[in-house]
Design a protein around this nucleic acid. Structure first.
Length: 522
RNA sequence: GGCGGCAUAGCUCAGCUGGCUAGAGCAUUCGGUUCAUACCCGGAGUGUCACUGGUUCAAAUCCAGUUGCCGCUACCA
């Protein structure tokens, strides 16, 4: 049987400034999916990158007296550093300024134009001459330009348009036939009610007021506006060039999951499908439009001074705790929230007290009662059987939640297994068993179940907290390579895969040091 | 303004197509335990399930209205 493929992408952030923690949610979420699929044996391709064209970057660069490319270089390399800090395991990093991308986008534009899906028209709106910007009447502030406050005047400008209106019926039908195309469902309804039902409008896809972009091949005074350029990255990355498809494209397209923020939902579920359809390509199987991570109740912004950066937070609580927090705290339908208190609470309760302490106490007891040797289990009793069933049920819940894109629920299920194991210790009282030589076999059974349970925790937490999973295995099976162990740990078909006779570490070390709520500054 | 959604224990939230004394986590408090990172386990809770009406044998769960909050409604990237 050929290996199944899994292609996952994130939106490509606009390379204007250092991304805050909310801006990194795409990458962290996609990373968890990608890691799980790799563990499951899929041939995974995980794409991320940066969007580097457009007015804003042109302006920012001009302000510094450097080229837009030089500006984007700096921001993009900073972004890659943050992704490295977050342990993002992307396979490819595309930049819209990459040669192959620009060439492929130009070819796609040409093809769409030749087919009549792109046409030349004119854009009409309210123009602010000093700002060189068009505005809609709703954007105006007291009838004036929202940027400079000066008068605007009606104006028209030649531009190219994507004929979205032509595909209205097709798109409606596609939504109806693919109810899971957009997650969560509320976004899908918004799109239908707001844009599709009232009638799809054609979309202006070029600008002639800026130069920092991919030129229209046959009319170079126009450059492509963001959407056509940026959206195409998902296929140009694989080598799609509008003509001859590459092996990678044929193998990986369509994407299995595209992770995006709600702000770009509209373009990913309307414009992007239409582009693909017009190019004769299948659509991604699913688009996950996640909400935002707020600081408390407020949107993070530099001007508010409430921006949280992932790398700075990681220095205090560690990379995995940051990843865990982001994934566990972000709902699907409404915005998530990050606060100092919530981060510390998650860290201490979930990671230090429940998970870390469980691992530590289990390993300590194994050393104390069995000289660190993983004991062979005796016949399981009712209690052990129910524990095993619990583990299998956890795995099922975990995967079901992942399939539904409910990452927070998936993690909650795994944490529940850790709690169940802590409870198991209280139910069996190993220290009491250790005092009675006749109970030695059962003591071994208990310890074995704890250690095997911990191995399951390592497997199930690995997508969200890869370093922690490795850390657990390094203490549980110090003679083995944790990376290799993790890669081969699935499928967890039944409870009992841990080999008895192995030796755990002699010096158990807490995975997460408890943080003093009063002293830690975030 | 238009369309959609939500209002449930101190906090964050589960409660699908109506039906057993309304649940979980965290925080609080009491008890147990000592293997462990003063951790873990157990008990206790408190709740007019926003408000008002309606449908029904029966509503947190359906319908209408009211109030409050949120999302989408930008050719912003």
């Amino acid at each position: 049987m050929p290996q199944e493929k899994y292609y996952i992408t994130t939106a490509i952030p606009y390379a204007t400034q250092k991304p805050h923690i909310g801006n990194c949610y795409d990458q962290v979420a996609a990373d968890a999916f990608a890691r799980w699929k790799r563990m499951r044996g899929y041939d995974v391709w995980y794409l991320t990158g940066t969007d580097e064209h457009g007015q804003k970057i042109e302006d920012l660069a001009a302000k510094e007296g450097i080229t837009p490319k030089a500006y984007a270089d700096r921001i993009t390399s900073g972004m890659r550093e943050i992704f490295a800090t977050l342990n993002i395991s992307y396979d490819q990093f595309i930049r819209t300024t990459d040669d192959y991308h620009e060439a492929a986008v130009a070819a796609a534009f040409q093809k769409l134009y030749d087919q009549g899906d792109i046409y030349k028209g004119s854009y009409e709106g309210l123009y602010c001459t000093p700002c060189e910007s068009f505005w809609t009447s709703s954007q105006l502030v007291e009838g004036k330009c929202p940027d400079c406050g000066r008068d605007v005047a009606p104006a028209r400008e030649e531009a190219y348009f994507l004929r979205q209106s032509k595909y209205q019926g097709w798109l409606e039908q596609y939504y109806a036939d693919h109810p899971d195309f957009i997650a969560p469902e509320s976004r899908r309804n918004e799109m239908i009610n707001t844009f599709i039902k009232p009638g799809l409008q054609d979309l202006c896809v070029t600008r002639s007021t800026i130069t920092w972009g991919v030129p229209v091949p046959f009319d170079p005074k126009h450059v492509m506006y963001v959407w056509l350029d940026a959206l195409s990255n998902y296929i140009t990355a694989l080598g799609f060039d509008a003509g001859e498809n590459s092996d990678a494209f044929r193998k990986f397209w369509p994407a299995d999951l595209q992770v995006i923020g709600k702000d770009v939902c509209r373009f990913h579920v309307i414009t992007w499908p239409i582009m693909l359809h017009a190019l004769g390509q299948p659509l991604p199987k699913r688009v996950l439009a996640h909400p935002w991570l707020m600081f408390g109740q407020d949107k993070m912004s530099k001007s508010r001074g409430n921006v949280v950066y992932a790398d700075e937070l990681a220095e205090i609580v560690g990379t995995d705790a940051v990843r865990y927090y982001m994934l566990a705290e972000m709902p699907l339908a409404v915005d998530g929230s990050i606060t100092r208190e919530a981060v510390l609470e998650r860290y201490n309760s979930d990671l230090a007290n429940v998970l870390g302490n469980l691992v530590n106490r289990s390993l300590t007891m194994t050393n104390k009662y069995f000289d660190g040797i993983v004991p062979a289990p005796g016949e399981p009793f009712e209690l052990e059987l129910s524990l095993q069933a619990f583990a299998l049920e956890t795995l099922r819940q975990f995967e079901t939640a992942l399939e539904d894109c409910r990452l927070a629920d998936a993690l909650e299920a795994v944490l529940a297994l850790a709690k169940r194991l802590n409870k198991y210790i209280d139910e069996t009282l190993p220290w009491a068993l250790a005092k009675d030589p006749e109970k030695r076999e059962y003591l071994g059974t208990v310890l074995y179940h704890l250690l095997e349970g911990i191995r399951w925790l390592a497997a199930l937490f690995a997508p969200a907290m890869p370093a922690t999973a490795e850390g657990i295995l390094r203490q549980l099976q110090p003679e083995l390579n944790p990376v290799q162990t993790l890669a081969g740990i699935l499928p967890l078909k039944s409870f009992g895969g841990l080999e008895p006779g192995g030796k755990v570490t002699q010096t158990p070390t807490p995975l997460f040091a408890r943080l003093d709520t009063d002293k830690v500054l975030i």
